[in-house]
Structures are given as structure tokens and as C-alpha cells.
Design a protein around this nucleic acid. Structure first.
Lengths: 300, 300
DNA sequence: GACCGCCACAGGCTGTGCCTGTGACAGCAT
DNA sequence: ATGCTGTCACAGGCACAGCCTGTGGCGGTC
């Protein structure tokens, strides 16, 4: 029968004090209770642990071994609870974060670097995932958080991290490519390339509203599944599209980015509502900070 | 606050069963009690450990870490109690045994060999010590046992291990050296060499009685502190002495051993009364066995 | 829509483990 | 010698931790 840690702790104290009376005082219990604890311990281990004298107690050989083992075990227990508490505090463990391509391209490197510096004991596992898979993985608990773009779904909680300008993307030689700014309405008659509606319906419902507000319904000549894909189609002259200005870095030739006046895109941190893992809070703090550095005005 | 092992054991069971109800059944307690234990655990660690669903429970990330740590800790605890119990059973540990010279010369090697074979996990520390130091070391707890010769003192417990013949030891050319047997009385007029009375008074009081029974008081011409010493004096022709027959092996020239009819010497295992260490019992068993092999008739 | 299995809440009981009071014993000083 | 002071052990009483039973809400399933 394995004794409880409490009994072991008492016994170690007794061995340190060499006296039940003094040990009891240190443990804030009565000497009689401690005497009883020792008897329990001796019963559980089936061996005499103390030699009782009229001037205190002395360890028997078995008692000495028990003290040695108990010390090690108690130290182990303290270490174990410390680990658990660090994990609970989000200071240690694993955090799995999915990034949307159009967010990863400029936020992933600084976020990873800053987080590794701030929280070296947390292993940050990142991956670039399409929106539908990201949402599914969050819901299934396969990812702990995602840096993505709204709108999402009700059962995911979100926190806005960044608001950034949106640009029209035109083939390099397009008549409007030289403009410093455009309104969406000016692109009413252009052929459009957009992502497939099925890739993430909530986005497309938002697009529908925005196009409707601009007074037209875009003529979609082709669908592309990723920003890179869309940029390639634009560069090939298939049509125009609309992307966050930061997507500029994804392609350096054949396309022109012209800011769309008043048009903004948000980046949010998303996680399963009610299932925030402990290290999510520190992570969110780091992302907020990185966002501030990327654009001190627009962040938040 | 460090949880008790009982709570950790319960939690590991819960993680194995994935359900409070089933785990409670396995632990032979009510589901409600187990639920309460988990709440206690969560309170002590300051973190949610389980995700309660309508179809069981699932570990939170912190809970998973706790299970991992708890498993390791519980295994450690089991190992520790096993060690203590082995020590308590005398199957492991250290045993310090003092041997008298006149016992060590023929018993130490077979005892050490047999004990090492029988109890490989007990470290047997042996040393050859004069009788007075042996008794003092036993009383002080510096030795756990001694293989020695009676009489000793009241506060040492003893168990007879061997009874062996005693011989007169004569210089090689002595007129009686050719005899196959002698009585003590026949040596009444010889010059004697014996150990100093102060080396161990109880022995000398016994010698006094025995010499008195033989009808004389020996004329001691010189004192020698060890069997080897006495043998050297006899070989030098200084006088005769009396030793266990087994002391023959201590010197192979210049002396003759002639058995003394009816005279026997005992070897006893001695230890501090009431302070027998656990591995003493196995040790005594081995000594008994070795004694039987040394002399199947006289042992005991 | 009723049933079944899950977990949580509430209240009562029991036994573990605490306390106080007391005794035996050894060492020490008077 | 004889009390005095320290030690630990024994015995009895009490309180609360931790168990039980009864009950309710909630999701999934038939």
C-alpha cells in the first residue's frame, strides 16, 4: 500500500527534527496526531520506521531509506505540479495555429519570431491552411487558434487584430493601373476573377453585399482558389480582382495594386468558443503587438 | 498546492475510461464522489482539467499534461514503496558485519560468497575486528551484526551458529606434540601464552573456570593479542596455548594442534538486542547453512 | 417524443484524523 | 532520593472531509 504524500511530508519533517514534538509544532498539529501518522505509515509499509527513545526519535535503517525515497518523490511531485501550473498559465506547452495564406504571407514570420522570444517554453506549431479547412480544424480541436479573415461562424470566438487597406488588382497594362486610388464602382464593367463560392460562402455573401452597394454584380470569368492563383490569372490578363493590399508581396510582376477608397479588410484571431487553450492569451497579446508594429494606426 | 496521490490515481482512471461513471465503477465509489474529486483537483491546480459532455468527459490540454505527469509520479511512488518494502524485508540495503579473527579465517569467505549469491541486492560490508571493538561497535550501532565467540554481554542478543573442537597448541618439538588427544589437566605444568585479560574479561572469566575445573591455574609467561600472535609465540617455544581447532590454518609450521578431549568452542551471531536490522535474518540463515556445510554434525 | 446515459447539485451520514487529557519513562538537577 | 522536564503512547471525544443517495438538466438515439 502506497502512502499518501501528506504522510511522507510529515515523516520527512520528523526526520529533520528528530522529535515528534518539534516536528508536530512545525507542522501545526498535535504531537499525538503525528504519532498516529507514523503508526499509519508503519502499518502501510509493514516496517518499523522510528526508534522511539525518551529523548526523541531516531530513524531505523528502513526509515532512513524511506526518507531518502520520500524526499525524491516529494520533489518529483512539486516539479509535476509546477509543470501543470505553467501549462495552465500558458507559459509552457504546445499551441497549434492555422494561418490563412493571405495573412501568413506577412504576419507569420514576425509573429513566430516575437512569440518564440517572449514564450520560449511554448512550442508554436504553425501551418498555412485554406479557410474551410481552418474552420473545420478549429471546430474539431485539431487547431487551437487561427489567424484568418471574417466573417466566420457563430461557434468560433474572434478578436480583431488588424484592419488593412484593400486594393484592386489589375493586369500591368490596364488603363486604370496608373491611378493612385479607385472606387469599386469604377470596376463594374471589368471581367472578374474570384475564389469559388464554395470555398467559403460567408465571404461570398459579404462580397455580394459590397458589390451590390457599389451598384453592380461582377461578371466572373474564372475562379481561383488562392491569392497566388488569382494573381496569376490577373497577370495573365484574364480579369481583375480585389485583395488586401498586403498581398502585393505575393507577386512582383504583371499586376498592379491600386487601393480601393474606403475599402478595408480585417484580420481576426479565431478559436473555438469556450475552448480557449491557456497559451492562447499570451499568443493573442503577441499578435496584437505585431499588428501594432505593422501599422501603428490601423491595428486593433 | 500539490494534490494527494489518491486524487491523481482517480484522475488517471478517469482519463483511461473517458467517463466519470465508468471510472467511478472501477474505483468502487459513486460517480458523484468522483465528480467531487475532480473539482477538488481542479481547485488545487487552478485549471480546468476535463471537458464535460453529455456522453462522458474529455481531457483538456492541461488535463492531458496532468495525466502524463501523474502517471510518472504514481510510477515513482510505486517504485519507492517497493524499494522500502524490499529493504524492510531484508532483500536490499547494506549489512555491516564484524568478524573475530579466529572466525573470519575460515567462515568469512564461504559466508560472503554464499550471501552474495543468495542476496545480490544487499551490500555485505565485512571487517575483521578485535572482540572489544566488535562489542562496542555493535552497541553503538556502527555494526549490524558480529560473528564472534561467547560469552558477550547482556544487551547483545546471540544465536549459536557452530560448535567446534578446541585444541592445545604446542611447539613442534614438544613431548606431547605427537599425541592424538589431550586433556587440559595434562598441560598444568606447561608455560602458557594467553590473550591479555583486559582484551575481553568475560572470556577470561570463562577460562578461569575451565582451568579451575581442570585443577590448575595456568602459569602465563606471556600475553599475545591475536591468535596469530599466540601461534607465533608457541612456535618460538615460549609456551603452549589453547585455540579452536580451526585456527590451524593460521600457521603451518612450528606448532602442533592436539585436540583437547571434550573441549568445545562456540561461534555465535550477535546483534544489539531489539535492534535487529531487516537483512539480519537472511544473513543468519546463510551463516547457519555455511556452518552446516563446514561440519554437518557439530553445527547449530 | 420518450428514453437512456451522461454529469452536476443538494443534503445527510460515516469514519478518518484531529484535538485534549493522561500516563509511563528517562535524564537531570536539586 | 525526589521532584522536574522533556520525551512518546494511549484513550476518548468531536468535527469535517469525503462518502452515499436522491434528484435534475442536458444531448443523443430510437
Amino acid at each position: 500500500m502506497t502512502p499518501e504524500l501528506r504522510l511522507l511530508r510529515s515523516f520527512v519533517t520528523i526526520s529533520e527534527e528528530g522529535s515528534l514534538t518539534r516536528a508536530a509544532a512545525r507542522l501545526h498539529i498535535a504531537q499525538q496526531s503525528l504519532s498516529q501518522q507514523v503508526r499509519t505509515l508503519e502499518g502501510q509499509l509493514g516496517a518499523q520506521l522510528l526508534e522511539r527513545t525518551s529523548r526523541g526519535v531516531r530513524l531505523t535503517p528502513v526509515g532512513a531509506v524511506l526518507v531518502r525515497e520520500a524526499r525524491a518523490l516529494l520533489a518529483h511531485a512539486d516539479r509535476a505540479t509546477a509543470i501543470v501550473q505553467r501549462v495552465a498559465a500558458g507559459e509552457e506547452g504546445v499551441l497549434r495555429v492555422g494561418f490563412l495564406s493571405s495573412v501568413a504571407n506577412y504576419m507569420l514570420p514576425p509573429v513566430v519570431r516575437a512569440f518564440a522570444e517572449r514564450h520560449p517554453r511554448v512550442e508554436l506549431q504553425t501551418q498555412e491552411v485554406p479557410i474551410a479547412r481552418l474552420v473545420a480544424a478549429l471546430r474539431a480541436g485539431e487547431l487551437d487558434a487561427g489567424l484568418t479573415r471574417p466573417p466566420l461562424v457563430d461557434d468560433l470566438a474572434t478578436e480583431g487584430m488588424l484592419t488593412e487597406p484593400v486594393a484592386a488588382v489589375l493586369p500591368a497594362g490596364h488603363p486604370l493601373a496608373g491611378r493612385t486610388e479607385l472606387s469599386l464602382a469604377e470596376l463594374a464593367d471589368e471581367p472578374w476573377v474570384l475564389t469559388p463560392r464554395a470555398s467559403w460562402p460567408p465571404w461570398h455573401r459579404l462580397y455580394d453585399e459590397e458589390f451590390a452597394r457599389a451598384g453592380f454584380e461582377p461578371r466572373v470569368v474564372q475562379r481561383g482558389t488562392s491569392p497566388q492563383n488569382l494573381l496569376a490569372l490577373v497577370a495573365a490578363g484574364v480579369g481583375v480582382t480585389r485583395l488586401p493590399l498586403s498581398s502585393r508581396t505575393l507577386r512582383d510582376s504583371g499586376v498592379a495594386f491600386v487601393p480601393l477608397a474606403g475599402d478595408v479588410a480585417k484580420v481576426v484571431l479565431a478559436w473555438r468558443a469556450g475552448h480557449a487553450v491557456p497559451s492562447l492569451a499570451p499568443f493573442a497579446a503577441v499578435v496584437r503587438e505585431v499588428a501594432r508594429e505593422l501599422d501603428p494606426v490601423a491595428a486593433g
